[in-house]
Design a protein around this nucleic acid. Sequence first.
DNA 1: AAAGGGTGTTCAACTAGATTAACAAGATCA
DNA 2: TGATCTTGTTAATCTAGTTGAACACCCTTT
Lengths: 194, 194
Amino acid sequence: MELESLFNYIKKFITLSDAECDVIADHVKLRDYLKHQFIVQQGDVCKYESFIVSGCAKTFFLDTEGNEHVVSLAIENWWAADLGSFISREPSDYNVQCLENCRVVQFSYEALEQLYEKIPQMERFFRLIMQNAYVAAQKRVLRNHSLPAKERYLIFRKQYPNIEQRVPQYLIASYLGITKQFLSKIRAEIILEG
Amino acid sequence: MELESLFNYIKKFITLSDAECDVIADHVKLRDYLKHQFIVQQGDVCKYESFIVSGCAKTFFLDTEGNEHVVSLAIENWWAADLGSFISREPSDYNVQCLENCRVVQFSYEALEQLYEKIPQMERFFRLIMQNAYVAAQKRVLRNHSLPAKERYLIFRKQYPNIEQRVPQYLIASYLGITKQFLSKIRAEIILEG
DNA sequence: AAAGGGTGTTCAACTAGATTAACAAGATCA
DNA sequence: TGATCTTGTTAATCTAGTTGAACACCCTTT
């Protein structure tokens, strides 16, 4: 079934009966987006937490000079959303745009609140997800302070081995917080070093 | 009572009966640390999530060259821990050291697991805490990429108006990801501009 | 077949911020 | 009382990373 990958993902954190899976299925929407379409747009309230079943998306924002800043890159089994906007119900600072055709499972705010009531384990599931996300974000802050761009790039390559063939390098550069020219230079060095 | 500030903090997110407060009280330890003492040490497993009742602490790590990198600064009603180590039970990458005498409320891993069972609402509480922490960390990643040091410093001052008088500037510089000399330069500029 | 957009590279000039070192002013403590 | 430690400043030099422009290499689309 279409939701199988979502259920498998959730089952890594909590146990789910078939009946509970059915309840979840009743509370989510399956939706397809085309490449270049926006799952979330800067200025709109982020209405869904979207779990990516297939495809690939970037989360970014435009600063006052119109420069694009990539916050995160997401592929299968990742979440795409502006969580800050989703939980506060305030306009989003970010865009989430598809880099490939995407199939996503969407949880609305109301659906999630209902799920927390009907399946209390879901509260635990999202706690665990958020814990992990927080730890990862913290480590990223740290690496950005303490490591030069080249090492950050090498870590990125280990951490996301699949993503590099799928998304253009100028987006990876932006994610790493450097310019595409400098990333190009780093890559040339790495190739020379073997 | 000593735990009142913790309960008030929790009650901002969920409702707690007096009986539930008593259960929580049975599962936590109140502990005092002196200035300069370590709540967590790099290399040890982080055994507690510590809620600061009074005092002030820095979370930092030493890189391979022995340079100190401040990850976060915490005052009253904040948490101090290496969450990554706490949840994975692996040695911590960070130190948490008191900048003033500190009184903290500590949750051990086992106590927390028991609390989640006895007071399911606590699962929700920590989900909400983690969500907020994650959103804040994400915003910090972003600001570090897209804003110059001066603006990051000004935002820091707005966000933590109390902390600046309590902790030395070289720690604030490290938290911002710049050197103390450069922070000094920025401060001189800001004073000139009025 | 040509024209155009999206992507990656190279190179020169430039700048934000690092590094090193020297100095001043309080603390702290014998 | 002086001595040492901690903290903040200033200034010179240095470097990681930026900016901008030019060029090459695909893909599409017409």
